[in-house]
Amino acid sequence: MDDALTPAEWSAVWLSLKVALTATVLSLPAAIGLGYWLARRDFWGKALVETFLSLPLVLPPVVTGYLLLVLFGRRGLLGQYLDEWFGFHLVFTWKGAALAAAVMAFPLMVRAIRVAFADQDVRLEQAARTLGAGRWETFFRIALPLARRGVLAGAVLGFARSLGEFGATVMIAGNLPGETQTIPLLIYTEANAPGGIEASARLVVLAILIALAALFAAEWLERTQGRKDAKG
């Protein structure tokens, strides 16, 4: 396998996995919280929140990347404070790539998770409350386990979307080999070089394999969890 990929390609693979995993893990709790909130609460301006949330799905990714740059650039609205107070930089770093991936994947995750919560019988939560469980216990013992398929689907969707993120990533993190050059960016770079179509084919196959592995892992998790529940 060492011979199959060049050091640059290995680096892109590991970086992609790191970026996608970070983006998924860090945004999953917020996606679960927001999905639950949107499924359970009706409030004034809910449609507005939902529209805003879906924006990254319909905007050109480059535009989202541009907005992230405006927000999190070194002189950006938030970026300047991150720099000043914590010495934390996102632009041209893998963390910036993870942020771009998280923002692009977030709406997909929330959608899948929200549907899972909305499909539940909310009276099960009422039953748990009458049995002495507070809001948090009810959420963690009843609502969340019952929504696990949706959460898992959301996480896999988010991971896959993060893995394929290009436009927003290139805006905020650039295309630095070994630093921010993920699989899609390397494919783009290689494909633009002479004879690059053949060179990038390996990476294309690898990207497909990683996506398939993520789907299989989710399926396996779902099955083992189902068996555990059946045993009680």
């Binding site: 019988d121 099960l124 039953a127 748990a128 009843i142 386990p145 019952l146 529940d229 045993k231 009680g232």
Partner: peptide
């Protein structure tokens, strides 16, 4: 309203 994902116990 039994919890469908939990055993009887």
């Amino acid at each position: 309203l039994l919890f469908p994902h939990l055993s009887v116990r």
